[in-house]
Design a protein around this nucleic acid. Sequence first.
RNA 1: CAAGCAGGCCGGGUAGCCGCUCCGAUGUUUUCACACCGGAGAGGAAAGUCCGAACUCCGCCAGGCAGGGUGCUGGGUAACGCCCAGGAGGGGUGACCCUACGGAAAGUGCAACAGAAACAUACCGCCCCUCGCGAGAGGAGCAAGGGUGAAAUGGUGAGGUAAGAGCUCACCGGCGGAAGGGUGACCUUCCGGCCGUGCAAACCCCACCCGGAGCAAGACCUAAUAGGGGGAAAUGGUAUGCCUGGACCGUCCCCGGGUUGGUCGCAUGACCCCGAUGGCAACAUCGGGGCAAGAUGGAUGGCUACCGCCCCGUGAAAGCGGGGUACAGAAUUCGGCUUAUAGGCCUGCUUGGUAU
RNA 2: CGGGGUGUAGCGCAGCCUGGUAGCGCACCUGAAUGGGGUUCAGGUGGUCGUCGGUUCAAAUCCGACCACCCCGA
Length: 120
Amino acid sequence: MAKQLALTRRAQYLAVYGSGKAFADSALLVKVMPNRLGATRSGFSISKQIGKATVRNRVKRLLKENVRQLELKAGWDIVFIARRSIVETDYHTLGSIMSRLLRRAGILEQDAKKAGAEAN
RNA sequence: CAAGCAGGCCGGGUAGCCGCUCCGAUGUUUUCACACCGGAGAGGAAAGUCCGAACUCCGCCAGGCAGGGUGCUGGGUAACGCCCAGGAGGGGUGACCCUACGGAAAGUGCAACAGAAACAUACCGCCCCUCGCGAGAGGAGCAAGGGUGAAAUGGUGAGGUAAGAGCUCACCGGCGGAAGGGUGACCUUCCGGCCGUGCAAACCCCACCCGGAGCAAGACCUAAUAGGGGGAAAUGGUAUGCCUGGACCGUCCCCGGGUUGGUCGCAUGACCCCGAUGGCAACAUCGGGGCAAGAUGGAUGGCUACCGCCCCGUGAAAGCGGGGUACAGAAUUCGGCUUAUAGGCCUGCUUGGUAU
RNA sequence: CGGGGUGUAGCGCAGCCUGGUAGCGCACCUGAAUGGGGUUCAGGUGGUCGUCGGUUCAAAUCCGACCACCCCGA
């Protein structure tokens, strides 16, 4: 994932936390907020409660890879917040969870619906 | 063959598709960047942060006192609480392993409860003498036996005695002295007399070492705001305990305001590999060769297929089916220690069994 | 990444420096007082002292290692 598509400042995270809409699953919490950039940026929050450094790295990489595969509408800031049960979730299950949550948020491209159904 | 001891090593592989960070070349572009090609990209512990250093800043000024650390001896090292070799003590049939292992006649303190006594003692007792018909009472001696305790004034045996005791003797242990060996810890031999304990991971004494903070250290650049208001104090302040001397001058607190960007530090180093020489070894010296991650909301990845390895079931075997493939993720960099770790390999040695 | 602190009864804490008895408040249980409840009074239950080793006759306390949680830092 390219660097300019990532949230890199604490202020950006706090803005999404404060005024973004939330969509939740038992393994994942997603907060989204529209921006005016014409591009969609995403950030990841995996706290120390999730596990040791190896586990946190693994979770973040799975999330990033799934974001890369999904086709998202432009112009949104998205923060993915991991919950404890995400440790037992594999790549494909996590992909279906993410596509479901983002479709509810209304920022998944219609073309990608098919791919999301396939992943299920 | 089985059980074990010591040392060293590895810690999945190949291919395809899609990605990430850095470096280099080319092209487009005013720059920022973008496209494409090539190269590099987690560990033995990267971990815990328990020690030691490099490096950086702080007033590392001088002296002294506190305070902290280490603790058998000798060596290695930049340094260490690490490593090597040796000594002593302890454990194991053995290979071998373990040990914070200086000082208790420098001083202070503690040893609860129990017990007569925990620095000097006699509770139950033992023996002798006197009185008494006797039970017993008084006097003198003893510390062997019993009892209490974690610990009771060297141990075993013999002699000796009224009963006993290092009272005497032999051996052992401890202490002191002498001689010899060893750089030293210490060892061996001889002589002397018979001397109460434990705790220094209690204070302490002795020997040696230590200024403090840490890469969010620190340096530079760009942008922006302000050169402000109030108070304390001159026996004040100048970075980390205290005192003395010396040096310097504004210092400290509160309110208000601004920045929470970029670059460097940052990877050629007490570096790695091979060989030779010196040394029992740790290690050192010399020669040759090599360059091996560098992120900053933090890269080093995701998926698929096949193979390898281990376990279980089935089977004569081949094979088949199922499951597993650990601990763990660089953040200034090194030297150690400690802790976690599926499975596997190599070398030497010990004990027991069997065969020749 | 670096620095520091704390783990003791259900909860909040003391005891640790200077080693031998684990204590205080709230809560809980029983009884008294009230027609009943609260308040009050009396009595009582309850703790592997975070875990594992070491020193010591003896460890919550001294020493070492490990685990968990919390705080601070341009």
